[in-house]
């Protein structure tokens, strides 16, 4: 796989997302949410999507707008219910969307496993609770663990702060959240950024997501490659 493509158009970046795709969407609430990429996906029209994200939309923009456009079949998330999650709440109560609730750490680790080639892992989180019902368990050193499987995406939509022209990424403060994990876990990884800098413009010591994980970088002011 070659270095990332640099695109100026959000629409071009998401043009090939297919109906029924599993889409990993970065962000914790609105911090780190790739709003422009989601808007482009709404415009693009892909439907029956499975969305993997920490929340199920806030307010009326970003993920909430994608849900409101009825493009999402199922949400896999840790925390759908929030004070401003009215779009999801309405769809869920009307039976128009499926929900899989996953403990937040398992959500992250299951994607990490997908990106790291791990077939499954034993995890202590949620043992004895409804969220591990029916899962295989094993006692290791006297503690009970449940078997958790990877979550792999067809596409990841993430937001980073800066990229270089190879696709190395750095993030900004707590907007980092799920971005680096999702970048490892999807077949096609699309990152929107505020700025693209020339090669050598990012200190290699502080690169958070190395370019090997990134397929497309989108920045409206960037020169396309």
């Amino acid at each position: 796989m070659s270095a990332a493509s640099i695109l100026a158009s959000y629409a071009d970046a998401v043009a090939d997302v297919e109906d029924g795709a599993t889409v990993l969407v970065g962000g914790f609430g609105m911090a780190g949410m790739p709003v422009e990429l989601i808007d482009a996906l709404i415009e693009q029209g892909a439907k029956d999507l499975v969305i993997v994200s920490n929340n199920a939309g806030n307010g009326d923009t970003g993920l909430a707008a994608l849900l409101a456009a009825k493009r999402v079949r199922k949400v896999v998330c840790s925390f759908p219910r929030q004070s401003d999650s009215w779009v999801f709440d309405g769809l869920y109560r009307a039976g128009q969307i499926e929900l899989e609730v996953v403990p937040q750490g398992n959500l992250a680790e299951r994607m990490r496993a997908a990106g790291a080639g791990i077939g499954a892992f034993f995890c202590p989180t949620g043992v004895g609770t409804p969220l591990t019902e029916g899962k295989e368990t094993r006692v290791i050193d006297g503690r009970t663990y449940a078997l958790e499987y990877p979550i792999k995406g067809d596409v990841a939509l993430i937001k980073a702060h800066r990229a270089d022209t190879m696709g190395n990424l750095v993030y900004r403060k707590t907007a980092r959240n799920f971005g680096p994990v999702m970048a490892t876990a999807a077949r096609t990884v699309i990152a929107q950024v505020s700025e693209v800098v020339p090669l050598g413009g990012l200190d290699p010591e502080v690169v958070v997501t190395p370019s090997i994980y990134v397929d497309r970088v989108v920045c409206p002011t960037a020169q396309e490659s």
Partner: peptide, 30 residues
């Protein structure tokens, strides 16, 4: 808005702060 706590409330950064991704954050817990 890029610097919030778990309740999604904007907070501040103290000297010695560190940022990390979600898998690391929960590895710290487990």
């Amino acid at each position: 808005l890029d610097l919030t706590n778990a309740g999604k409330i904007p907070v501040t950064e103290l000297p010695g702060a560190a940022y990390f991704h979600h898998a690391d954050s929960f590895a710290m817990m487990r």
